[in-house]
Amino acid sequence: SISKDALLSVKNKYDLRRADRYTAIVMASAVQACADAGFADCAMADTGIIIASSFGPHRTTFAFLNDILDYPEDQVLPTTFSHSVHNAAASYVASSLQIRGPTISLTGFEDLWFDALELSDVFLNSGCCQRIVLVGVEELALLTQSLPSILPDSFHCRLLEGSVALLLSSTPEGKNYTSITCSRRSSCGEKPDRHSSCATANDFLGGAFQTALKALASSNQPGTTISIG
């Protein structure tokens, strides 16, 4: 699993005393993507944030629900409740990196990474903002760790945990790894059996890592384009 020290260093740097683990995972990748592009520790105007996750902060959500079962309603922790909100991590990124722009959290179980990239493309092309911090994240908790045994047909392999952040821009800037395009393929007939390769949840985070890997691989070849379908 992700080392506690790595998350602790991010929490200490940005004084995230009460942030939950999910937020720290999101922050670790988002901070690094901005630093990689040369925007570290400075306000980024006209920048949007899109955070995509199939399960979101479910560790915190269940912690809050467990508290509701164990304690009277007026004695549960408001801090746990506020972090159980799906958009909390995006707000932390906006606040810590002083990013001003639209802030969106996406969730879903099919083609989530593609949806997130496509939404980023729409935001940039429509002039809604000049940059997008796009984060794909998945945190493992009791539910997600148990899924292969609870639903072996849908989740036949162990889920991945991690986070990938891309700083996307409408014009070349920063490291300028590559350009990226999204095109939705029209589906005819039945979808292929996705379970034969991997669980859809893993497809999401795996897809995010693959996009980052392709971008890194293309950094030595300027002018290349990654096409996501």
């Binding site: 699993s1 992700i2 080392s3 790595a6 991010v10 995972i25 670790a28 990748s29 988002a30 901070v31 690094q32 993507a33 901005c34 630093a35 990689d36 592009a37 040369g38 925007f39 980023s120 493309d121 940039l124 092309n125 940059r131 997008i132 991945l160 945990e161 991690g162 986070s163 990938v164 952040a165 891309l166 700083l167 996307l168 821009s169 409408s170 014009t171 070349p172 800037e173 920063g174 490291k175 300028n176 790894y177 590559t178 350009s179 990226i180 395009t181 890592f209 980052a212 890997l213 971008a215 890194l216 990654i226």
Partner: peptide
């Protein structure tokens, strides 16, 4: 659109060198 920066964290740590 263009990819201007990359960040990642997984079991292998923070940073693109871990990808």
């Amino acid at each position: 659109m263009f990819i201007s920066g990359i960040g990642a964290i997984s079991a292998s740590g923070i940073g693109t060198e871990n990808l």
